[in-house]
């Protein structure tokens, strides 16, 4: 039983990471009706940006450490957000009128460019990078169940992010415009909503959340590597699809399910750890076969 609880905790952590990535996919899909496949690469790019910013800031001697960390995170998140909007400008905007799959292809290509770009241009970017930030090592144990400070922090941070996100979407004017656009693009345009602006803001928002996910990932697992975005992207995308593309809360559920499936596979299926992604994907394929609209997704009616 203790083992199961411990596994649930580790699965939950992985699940939150997936959920944060998947929320970005869902947010972008909801507004643009396209899949921005490079989203996970943007997330991990956020981790790399924060490493670069940190190296830069720690050269300034009179900064105390906590200030360095604070500014690192702020800058990294903003820079990643800007990178997200640049991607929108170059690789999504020109194809807004083309079939959605063209955007999928172009963003798959963007993903490759980001990954290979990190590999080639980041100093010795091909090898795994030790992430300089990490949570304090405090922990308390209760009958064999160990709960660490990092676990609690991740849950709290994720909670704050989702709280702010729902506040932004539901209470602000821009949030209202985003909701309107995601319901009906033409109608939104008729009502005078500046689509360019909405798309830009959505990309900025999704990329900042992604950057937080990337940084949390780095802090929790202590390592980032240029190619993590590939698997992260496919799993994040899967989680979003499982939850119902376009639904952020669905993405959270999808992410958590996949995280727990992976962690349980590693622990309880004998010799199963190399196959953990396979189990996750089998769950996804089953969902697509039997509930293609996802857990919280709307039923799509084919219009002729």
């Amino acid at each position: 039983m203790v083992l199961v609880i411990n596994q649930v905790i580790t699965g939950l952590m992985l699940g939150i990471m997936y959920a944060l990535i998947a929320s970005g996919f869902s947010l972008l899909f909801g507004v643009l009706n396209v899949v921005q496949f490079a989203h996970a690469d943007v997330c991990f790019l956020g981790a790399f940006v924060s490493m670069a910013v940190m190296t830069f800031l720690s050269k300034i001697e009179f900064f105390p450490t906590w200030l360095v960390i604070f500014f690192t995170i702020i800058f990294a998140v903003i820079i990643t957000g800007i990178i997200g909007t640049i991607i929108e400008k170059i690789c999504v905007k020109p194809f807004r009128k083309s079939p959605g799959l063209i955007i999928l292809l172009s963003t798959v290509a963007v993903g490759f460019i980001i990954r290979e770009g990190i590999k080639i241009f980041y100093p010795s970017g091909a090898s795994p990078k030790f992430f300089p930030l990490s949570f304090p090592q405090w922990a308390f144990s209760m009958g064999g169940v160990t709960i660490r400070f990092s676990n609690i922090m991740i849950i709290i941070i994720a909670g704050i992010i989702y709280f702010l996100l729902s506040l932004f979407i539901n209470k602000t004017k821009i949030g209202l415009q985003i909701r309107a656009t995601s319901q009906n693009v033409e109608a939104a345009q008729v009502l005078g909503i500046d689509l360019d602006k909405i798309f830009m803001i959505t990309f900025f928002l999704a990329s900042t959340i992604g950057a937080v996910a990337g940084i949390l990932n780095g802090m929790y697992y202590n390592i980032v590597k240029f190619d993590m975005g590939l698997m992260g992207g496919i799993i994040g995308f899967s989680a979003a699809v499982m939850g119902g593309l376009g639904n952020i809360y669905g993405a959270i559920i999808g992410g958590l399910i996949l995280g727990i499936v992976e962690s349980f596979t590693m622990a309880f299926v004998p010799g199963g750890s190399p196959y953990k992604e396979i189990f996750a994907f089998i769950v996804v394929v089953l969902f697509l076969l039997f509930k293609p609209s996802g857990i919280l997704g709307k039923k799509v009616i084919e219009k002729v």
């Binding site: 580790t10 992985l14 697992y221 190619d227 962690s263 349980f264 622990a267 750890s273």
Partner: peptide, 8 residues
């Protein structure tokens, strides 16, 4: 490329 060894 595994980064989470905690389950094992």
């Amino acid at each position: 490329g595994t980064k989470d060894f905690r389950p094992i």
